[in-house]
Design a protein around this nucleic acid. Structure first.
Length: 267
DNA sequence: ATGGTAGGAAGCCTA
């Protein structure tokens, strides 16, 4: 049986619900995970998505900032959220797809971390590092669990040399500093997660999911970063049959600065 | 080296 999952930082789901519909019609993923919905809990625009076959929606939003949601053709159970850093932020939501082999799905929006990569002077960067520490401990526990698991989302870190347009120029830029990329390496070393995107695109090839709004011509400059990720347990990673990064979506009318990413699995 | 754009909320914060 096929199972496809997409992830997209939508940067306001109410403003861009038309783009969400367009993506769902075009790609028909079984599941779409959204981040930065910027939509208070209870105000998620579910109706147009239910009309096109996505009848199961887990929303976890708050006013103004952050916000995550899972939009699915398939039913799920056990919606939960873990409050990393105990701030009450809407940055994680999880559901389980039941079946012969249940699949636990986690959708994350990790703090961006501000501009200054120094936790002593920038509390937003300190928050990001604490979030990563807690994610490492949580992942260590996950690694002991049996069964399939998937983690997707805007992790706001581009870990590898070719996950950014210039490794040298971005070493001091939040999202690609050694302190962050080392933290992500520790999370991966916990053993729960495998990088599905890089199973399909070799590490010596550029791979981006985000281009700044501030560029004059994002496509010509092509100064992108891979901030969005799809991770799974080892067995599911072995069964991943395809990857798509929807670069064209960055050029849609009134776009998000992130593009959708989708992986397919044979389960 | 700097400032550039975008969204939400409400007259500034975050990305």
């Amino acid at each position: 049986m096929g199972f496809s999952i997409a992830t997209w930082n939508i940067n306001s789901v109410r403003l861009r619900i038309g783009l969400v519909e367009r993506l769902l019609k075009e790609w028909q993923p079984d599941v779409l995970c959204l981040q930065e919905t910027k939509c208070p809990q209870g105000q998620f625009p579910s109706a147009p998505l239910k009309e096109i076959g996505y009848g199961h929606i887990a929303e976890f939003g708050q006013k103004g900032y952050h916000g995550v949601a899972i939009v699915s053709k398939r039913p799920f159970t056990a919606q939960t959220s873990h409050d990393f850093c105990s701030k009450g932020d809407s940055r994680h939501v999880s559901v389980t797809f039941e079946g012969a082999k249940p699949i636990e799905l986690h959708n994350f929006y990790i703090p961006a971390g501000g501009d200054e990569p120094d936790p002593k002077v920038n509390e937003k960067f300190a928050h990001k590092l604490q979030f990563l520490d807690e994610l490492e401990a949580w992942s260590t526990q996950k690694a002991k669990a049996k069964g399939h698991r998937i983690l997707v989302g805007d992790l706001n870190i581009a870990p590898l040399v070719h996950d950014v347009w210039s490794h040298k120029d971005l070493l001091k830029v939040v999202s690609h500093t050694p302190i962050e990329t080392d933290a992500m390496k520790r999370i991966m070393a916990a053993g729960a997660w495998h990088d599905v995107m890089r199973r399909h695109v070799p590490e010596d090839q550029k791979l981006y999911t985000w281009w700044s709004y501030r560029a004059k011509d994002w496509n010509a400059a092509d100064r992108g970063r891979r901030l969005d990720h799809i991770w799974t347990d080892a067995a599911l990673a072995e069964r991943s049959g395809g990857l798509q990064v929807h670069r064209d979506a960055r050029g849609w009318q009134q776009p998000s600065d992130h593009v959708p990413v989708m992986a397919r699995f044979d389960i």
